[in-house]
């Protein structure tokens, strides 16, 4: 990918308070609406989890659209959106060099210990 890479991840949940929004943001024409990836944190979930994608004219409207598309049935309490173009992903071509070496490193797994009964989440 030749996309310019930025490292501005970690957006917090974007609040939509009762105030009327009064600052217009620069929007793009409809044909240029970028693709966004949507992450929702469920009521019980620990992490934001990817749920799908959508098109929106800008970041704020993407949060709104995500609310309408992906949290209609009480699924979430927090939404993140990020432009798909801003995601840097590992390449399928690199699958073996990336992941295969982990397959035989049994010593990386804590399977040689007795786990005390009162230690959860191992």
């Amino acid at each position: 990918m030749s996309t310019d890479l930025t490292a501005e991840g970690g957006h917090g949940a974007v609040p939509t308070g009762p105030e009327v929004p009064v600052e217009p943001k620069a929007s793009t024409a409809r044909r240029d609406w970028p693709l966004y990836e949507v992450f929702v944190r469920g009521k019980r979930g620990l992490n934001h989890v990817h749920v799908g994608s959508l098109h929106a004219p800008d970041d704020e409207m993407a949060v709104h659209a995500a609310r309408d598309l992906y949290t209609r049935r009480n699924e979430g309490v927090s939404i993140w959106v990020v432009r798909s173009a801003d995601i840097t992903a590992s390449s399928p071509d690199e699958k073996d060099p990336m992941f295969a070496p982990n397959g035989d490193k049994v010593y990386r797994h804590p399977t040689f210990y007795e786990i005390p009964e009162n230690v959860p989440h191992m």
């Binding site: 469920g42 009521k43 019980r44 979930g45 620990l46 992490n47 989890v49 049935r73």
Partner: peptide
């Protein structure tokens, strides 16, 4: 995985695992 695979699994689990979250739950 130490946590739910998806928010939908979590939702389903939170409401008795009946697999009917699509019809609304927790209202």
């Amino acid at each position: 995985m130490g946590h739910e695979e998806t928010v939908y699994d979590a939702l389903d689990h939170a409401h008795g695992g009946e697999g009917q979250w699509a019809f609304g739950t927790g209202f």
